[in-house]
Design a protein around this nucleic acid. Structure first.
Lengths: 189, 189, 189, 189
DNA sequence: TATGAATGAGCATTCATTCAT
DNA sequence: AATGAATGAATGCTCATTCAT
């Protein structure tokens, strides 16, 4: 039991920012939009986050957790690593339909950024690395592949995932997702 | 025979814009930068292009021609379609090294755009469609695949290309390009 | 005869800024005040001046000319250098009364400035150097002093001027100006 | 005996503020800088001081005591009033070198202040009046001057002091201080 | 055709101060 | 007495676009 009246100013800022950054774009989103949606005063926002860039970093960190969990939940019923990997393309299909093929929040934010903003690219790299690691661990669990094969295959599957997300965003349909899944199935026999 | 005194105002604008849009980002590039690099007056620029968006459209159209030709030139010595497709990943490697893994100008511009800018996404879709068509025509030339197989394979290879470009941009190395090439080779036997 | 309809936007900006910077203070004056008094759009202002600091530099340069001329005009009837120097304290009295003992625009602006603003201090140094040079030239014209005496005396008189202006600003009366004049008379016999 | 656990919250605020106000400037110094240097919560600060202005007043009062004592200590070995006055220019030289010719904290604060801040100018006037009084008392001790002469001379010497401090601040050297000393010696024979 | 001047709306950020606890 | 959280107003500056000539 808590005596707090208003729930989390910081949370509200992050929620508004997450929504706007993802669906409108980082550069399309102004601080004013964020605070007006969050119903927070401007200076309050700057007490919680040093800069717009810092909000983006927090947004991406949160998004990483959220997205990975969403995927893992989706795949919870699958029995083995190979199945999980292949079904992850079904997850992409489900998810990207849900967000109207808005694509990957991490891909979308690095492509149009001031040269000096290094913190954001770092989180993006981290997210993709973690996803790659998960794929590798699924392959490892299959007890079928050597370490070298795991490293190569996990990167190949990452390429499929990235390409599928990007191409589905461009074409606003799921054809690329289906193609990627087919391709992945061939790779894993 | 032309009566123009100064050579190509429009060309100069387009050249500056192309460089800035690609290497700095569309949102990072201001009209003032473009005109100052092009050494053109602001109103002159608006006489040639209705808006920044229109410059981007012209930039992308030009970029499509330039990029396709660059690739085709690179592949000119290859004898058949299959080889050309596989070697296209060598082209990506060569090209992306050259531009410091700045990624695809078409991918990069659609991810952070005002919702009302529809002309830019259209050119992006066109470019990717044309590339897909080229892949399909290469597959067709191999006389090995059915129409259905061609449609499916060409999309799968597109996924590999898009993913490889994006992932190499994120990680600033060519590992994803090599992975994509390996994967492509498996697909085409 | 000129075809201009509106008289000088740049002039209006400078005039507003000069007034506000001098009578309200540099830090007390916002860009918004300047443009609203000058009836100029913000971006128009920034087309003429790169920054607030640059406006201040232009203001001080103009002020230097204006102030020196004002003083020289005041002293025009005096016959020789010694008289002109001594009467310059009468000028200070006349002038500072006129501006309600607001003090010296150059002194007032250097005392509370961001550490990185070097252009403004430079103009201040220049102004004081020019005033010192004028005093020296007046002493020289008297054919009474050696070069060394001129250098020393001119600086001593500068000290009197600076101190008189500052102290009259603090006390909001002309007592210091009278004291400085007496002192100057003693110095020049 | 005091029950305070932490030593001097108020003292810490004042110490930080004094440093920042003098070396960075009143307008350049934000409340946040003061409290972060003083390691004091914002609301705690506002419990001790009603406003930034009030901190400045306290700072100046403290500075007056400190500065006068510093000067008197410096002059302690001098035997008579005339010597003390003349040597006070040596003190200025010593002191201003020490603070990198940052000038007079009292002069520096009045030149760029909101029009409604009257308490600060009052303390400045007080400080200069006290200094003038000290000079007068030194002259009086010499038993050489009439009351009228004392009043006039003390103001003249004040002009020299103020001018020397200001000019040395502008030029960032001690030439004006030496000139003022020479001038003072002439005045006092 | 070409241009320099001008604009309103918006940008991210910081200000001194107050409130609820 | 002490504090972390919150605020409205203002800061200096940049945006893509249009106008008058």
């Amino acid at each position: 039991m808590t005596t707090k009246i208003k729930p989390g100013v910081k949370e509200r800022i992050l929620q508004s920012a997450a929504d706007l950054f993802y669906f409108e774009g980082y550069n399309q989103t102004g601080i004013n939009q964020i605070i007006s949606e969050a119903k927070v005063a401007k200076a309050s926002m700057y007490q919680h986050f040093r800069s717009k860039q810092d909000i983006a970093v927090a947004y991406l960190q949160e998004r990483h957790e959220m997205w990975m969990n969403m995927m893992l939940d989706f795949l919870a019923t699958k029995e083995n690593g190979i199945e999980k990997i292949i079904s992850s393309f079904d997850f992409l299909d489900y998810w990207l339909n849900d967000v109207n093929f808005r694509g990957c929040g991490f891909q979308n934010i690095i492509t149009d950024l001031p040269k000096d903003q290094v913190k954001i690219p770092e989180v993006v790299v981290y997210h993709k690395k973690e996803l790659t690691n998960w794929i590798a661990s699924m392959l490892d669990a299959a007890n079928k592949y050597s370490d070298e094969e795991i490293e190569q295959l996990s990167l190949e599957i990452m390429v499929l995932i990235e390409g599928a997300i990007m191409l589905s965003q461009i074409n606003k349909d799921n054809a690329a997702l289906l193609a990627a899944k087919r391709c992945c199935e061939k790779l894993l026999k």
